[in-house]
Design a protein around this nucleic acid. Structure first.
Lengths: 221, 221
DNA sequence: CCGGCCTCCAAATCCCCGTATGATTTTGCG
DNA sequence: CGCAAAATCATACGGGGATTTGGAGGCCGG
């Protein structure tokens, strides 16, 4: 199965490396797309079939996938869904020689960045790729922050998570104590631990973390 | 210009009224779509041209627009952008008899709910319309809440907004006083006023309001 | 010009928050 | 079984937050 990450590959990669993954069964098209992307300082990975792509780990830098709709063994649209189901959320750009409108609409609904009918202009492809990579870079930034946050939240004990829920819902320590059936001082301790472990320097920060984590008022669930 | 709202039209509308706005220059198509939508309890407004639509206020209930791409005097895609620019954010469904892929992609990128090539199945149109109306209902709920919030925020004095920014950034009253060059007690007063005017029952609530409003730490701007 | 609003500040009071110290019980795991 | 982590609670102290009462100056529109 394809993997996201795999950071320790030993090589020191430039921080601004950007990758375009091309999947097309026509070797000529693969190569000409490869040349096109390399000409604007993009790294390229070429695949002849979806299976080849799945056999390699997904790149760990801002990247996107350029996909022919007609692929060996599977529709590009179905493959798009498989990728999403497998947790690979790289932006997808479709190209097709025999596409129709319903096909393009389905792809766009599924979140494709663009859907180019062959023949397309090189510039259109480049615009789409640049836009897709920009989108992926954004997503990566958000994802990194959220992963950090989730790790810290997971390190909380059950009680601390519970108390954090009440705290960020706006209840006072005394009220929380009443809700859970604890003494106020115990609530204070859990609250303090949660703040420390979450690395929150203020209640405001903790509330924003709870927001990002989707932590809700325990009374409503 | 088209208007959103216009609530006091005198008529008592059922709370679950849903409207489909149809714009097509072919009267036959207009009518058959009208019948289709009415058969599933949707209200319908039929227009032969974009100008006719702009001359009437936008409906104040969950609704969507069904647009032919080829319209008298203007492209449906351009009209879609005009509507957005004019602040009308109703979901749009396109239909076309002579469309191509770039056209459909452009429409979807611009946020269209669907893009149906004629002839389409009635069920496909109904599915698209139902989905669009659902989306609009959601948007209306969010919009109503945010409008409320913005109104309260606008009712704050400049000082209160400033203090609210610092407070929700996590600073203590004493620090805020230092930043602005005020005494701590004055900061407390503005803080209290802000809480009251924003109708926040806790700091946590105020932080979430600031989040929703896009209020940022005054030190970073 | 005056009333209303905004702004600013002080003193005092009450409540809440954070944390340290010290201790006991429960619980999960090796 | 025994240790470590978690959970519980009490007391005490220092400091922050909310609010009231009372007062003073500035600005703007009727």
């Amino acid at each position: 199965m394809i993997r996201q990450g795999g950071k320790s590959s030993g090589g020191s990669e430039p921080a601004d490396k950007r990758v375009v993954v091309v999947v097309d069964d026509d070797a000529g098209i693969r190569e000409s797309l490869g040349s096109l992307f390399r000409s604007v300082d993009l790294h390229v990975e070429l695949f002849g079939s979806p299976a080849d792509l799945l056999a390699r780990p997904a790149p760990d830098v801002p990247s996107c996938i350029v996909l022919d709709v007609r692929l060996p063994g599977i529709s590009g649209l179905d493959f798009q869904q498989q990728l999403a189901a497998a947790g690979v959320h790289l932006p997808v750009i479709f190209m097709t020689g025999h596409g129709d409108i319903p096909m393009s609409v389905r792809a766009m609904k599924a979140g494709a960045v663009d859907f180019l009918a062959k023949p397309f202009r090189d510039q259109d492809m480049l615009d789409a790729v640049m836009s897709a990579i920009e989108r992926d870079a954004l997503r990566r930034r958000d994802l990194a922050a959220e992963t950090d946050l989730k790790a810290r939240y997971a390190a909380l004990t059950a009680r601390e998570r519970e108390v954090m829920g009440y705290v960020t819902a706006g209840l006072m320590n005394k009220q929380i104590a009443g809700e859970i059936g604890l003494s106020e001082i115990t609530v204070k301790i859990h609250r303090g631990s949660a703040m420390r472990k979450m690395n929150a320097k203020s209640l405001a920060e903790l509330v924003r973390m709870a927001q990002a984590l989707g932590v809700t008022d325990p009374r409503s669930s």
